[in-house]
C-alpha cells in the first residue's frame, strides 16, 4: 500500500501506477463531493473525470502542507463550479412555485432519520443555483461573500438563495418523513 506521499510523488512523475492508486483510493470520496453539485450521477461522473485530470496535471502544485484530501476536495469543488459556469446557459429558469415556501414546520432533524442517499436525492432535485449556494455554504463552509464572488452573483442573492434552498430542502425532507411514517418499516 502506497502512502499519500508516495502517491503524490509518483503522480508528479506521471507514473501510471501512482495515478491508478490515487484514483482507487479517492475516487469514491470525490464522487461523493461531485454528486452534491450535480443533477445526477452521470453529471457527477463527468465532473469527477475532469477533477482527476486537474489533479493529475497539477499535483505538483500541492504544497504538501495542509491535508491532501482537503486539497483534492477543493479541486473537485472548483471543477464543479467551472462545470456550473460552463453549463449555465443550459439551465432552465425555475418556476416561481419552486421557491415560494412557507417557513414553518420542523427546524430540527434527527441525524439518522435520513440516509445519505436520500439527502443526495434532495440535493439533486434542487435548482442548480440553489444547489451550488447550499453546498458551498452549508457543507463546504464558504462565506456568502466568497460564494458571491465564486458564482458571480450578489452577496444578497447568495443569502436569499441559501435560505430559499433551505426552505425547499426542509419541505422535501418533511414530505419524505411523512412518507416514511405512513409506511412504517414492517420488515
Amino acid at each position: 500500500m502506497m502512502s499519500d506521499r508516495q502517491i503524490i510523488e509518483g503522480c508528479a512523475k506521471h507514473e501510471r501506477k501512482a495515478q491508478q492508486v490515487l484514483y482507487d483510493k479517492y475516487s469514491r470520496f470525490l464522487l461523493g463531493v461531485c454528486l452534491r453539485y450535480a443533477r445526477d450521477k452521470a453529471e457527477a461522473e463527468d465532473i469527477l473525470q475532469d477533477s482527476f485530470l486537474k489533479i493529475f496535471f497539477n499535483i505538483k502544485d500541492f504544497s504538501g502542507t495542509g491535508s491532501f484530501i482537503g486539497w483534492l476536495r477543493k479541486v473537485a469543488v472548483n471543477t464543479a463550479i467551472t462545470h456550473y459556469h460552463k453549463n449555465l446557459k443550459y439551465r432552465y429558469h425555475i418556476e416561481i412555485e419552486e421557491y415560494v415556501s412557507v417557513e414553518t414546520g420542523v427546524t430540527s432533524f434527527e441525524e439518522d432519520f435520513f440516509t445519505s442517499d436520500e439527502l443526495y436525492m434532495v440535493l439533486n432535485e434542487l435548482p442548480t443555483g440553489y444547489r451550488m449556494v447550499f453546498n458551498l455554504y452549508a457543507v463546504e463552509g464558504y462565506k456568502h461573500k466568497e460564494i458571491a464572488e465564486i458564482l458571480g452573483i450578489d452577496t444578497n442573492t447568495s443569502k436569499s438563495q441559501y435560505s430559499r434552498a433551505k426552505a425547499v430542502i426542509r419541505d422535501k425532507l418533511e414530505k419524505l418523513g411523512k412518507l416514511r411514517s405512513s409506511y412504517p418499516e414492517n420488515g
Binding site: R28, E111, L119, K166
Partner: peptide, 18 residues
C-alpha cells in the same frame, strides 16, 4: 440538528462508488 449540520454530517465525507 439543523439542515446545515445534517447535510454536513452526512455528506461531507460520503462516498459513492463510481
Amino acid at each position: 440538528m439543523s439542515i446545515r449540520e445534517l447535510f454536513r454530517q452526512k455528506l461531507e465525507n460520503a462516498e459513492i462508488i463510481p
